[in-house]
Simulated scan of single mutants.
Amino acid sequence: MTATLAAPPTRWRGTDFGTQVLVLTQRSLRTLVSDPRMVVFSVLQPLIMLTLFSQIFAGITNTPGFPTDVSYIDFLMPAILVNTAMQSALQAGVGLVTDMKNGVLARFRSLPIRLGAVLVARSLSDLVRTAAQLVLMLVLAVTIFGFSPAGGIAGVAGALALSLAVGWGLGWIFLAVASWLRNAELMQTVGFLAMFPLMFASSAYVPVSGLPGWLQAVANVNPLTYAVDAARALALSHPVTGVPAALGTSAVLAAIGWVFAVRGFRRPL
């Protein structure tokens, strides 16, 4: 009678990359939902900006160079979408720094998890958060401020999708910066120093033709101007020419951000 040899134990190698991304994304979203204060305050800032700018700059509609038959709220709202997505991209980097400091990532490193899955999950969870934030902003703009662009629902949906693409690409840049700086305060300082010139030296709030000469030159090479103009053209049903450039730039930023984010993320905590 021959003895039956036991099969050698199989080594568990963990789940696949897609499952890891899904589980980690759900974790980040649950963390967000568990603290509604984060949702409230993330909406307050762009809502305050929308309220102030729609009232302060409403008279710009009477100046030369402003599009005819367009209200200022219809002109402004696509820019608010892009700017809000850009500000949310900064929060992606801040959130990554927070995870680094509170020990979450140290625990992840002890598990059979690919570090790239952590970054992708952070990017996707912030994309979902930004989408919810922008949709809520649109609802408020329609119900409170009378936002009703000529492009209708399809045009607004296109502007929303473009804003999310721009924010997602910038989010990877901020994730890369966060993985190297690893300091929330410094991260926010660097982010705001980069964002405010981009926001105000662009076509976001006034037509470029209404800016001083030197600022027009800056706005004409500002990549945010192209993103805002493309989103505005979609919402207002104007000829669209800048969408491929905006999407291509976002893809390039995402690729560059991914490379540097992974390299910085792999450094010891």
Results as ranks from 00 to 15, higher is better:
Ser125Lys: 05
Val228Thr: 01
Val118Gln: 06
Phe174Gln: 09
Ser163Ile: 11
Leu136Ile: 14
Tyr226Cys: 00
Ala6Gly: 00
Gly152Pro: 06
Ala161Leu: 15
Gly171Phe: 03
Val94Phe: 06
Leu181Glu: 02
Gly151Leu: 04
Arg263Tyr: 04
Leu111Ile: 03
Gln87Glu: 10
Gln133Pro: 03
Asp16Val: 07
Ala85Trp: 01
Thr4Pro: 00
Leu186Glu: 01
Ser179Gln: 03
Phe75Trp: 06
Ile60Ala: 15
Ser202Ile: 00
Ile60Pro: 00
Leu269Met: 13
Ser163Trp: 04
Phe108Trp: 10
Ile56Ser: 03
Gly191His: 03
Ala117Leu: 03
Arg107Gln: 12
Ala219Pro: 07
Arg30Tyr: 11
Ser110Arg: 09
Asp229Thr: 02
Thr19Lys: 11
Leu115Asp: 12
Ala117Glu: 01
Pro64Val: 15
Ser28Phe: 12
Ser203Trp: 01
Ala7Asp: 11
Tyr226Thr: 14
Phe192Cys: 00
Phe174Gly: 04
Ala176Phe: 06
Val262His: 13
Ala245Cys: 04
Pro212Phe: 06
Met195Ser: 12
Met49Gln: 14
Ala231Cys: 09
Leu140Ala: 14
Val39Ala: 15
Val190Tyr: 02
Leu44Cys: 09
Val40His: 01
Val135Ala: 15
Asp35Lys: 14
Phe192Asp: 00
Leu224Trp: 07
Ala106Met: 09
Gly14Phe: 04
Val259Ala: 14
Leu134Lys: 10
Ile256Glu: 00
Gln133Ala: 12
Trp12Pro: 04
Gly59Thr: 12
Met77Trp: 01
Thr98His: 13
Asn183Glu: 05
Thr189Ile: 13
Ser54Pro: 01
Leu193Tyr: 09
Pro9Arg: 08
His238Cys: 01
Leu22Lys: 12
Phe260Ala: 02
Val23Pro: 06
Asn102His: 14
Ala255Glu: 09
Pro78Asn: 05
Gly264Asp: 08
Gly264Leu: 12
Pro36Cys: 10
Thr68Asp: 12
Ala117Ser: 09
Leu29Ser: 10
Thr249Ala: 14
Tyr205Gln: 10
Leu234Asp: 00
Val252Ile: 14
Leu211Tyr: 08
Ala178Cys: 10
Ser250Ile: 04
Leu76Val: 01
Tyr205Lys: 02
Met195Glu: 03
Ala230Gly: 06
Gly152Met: 08
Gln91Asn: 14
Leu105Arg: 12
Ile153Gly: 12
Phe66Pro: 05
Phe66His: 05
Leu162Phe: 07
Leu175Asp: 10
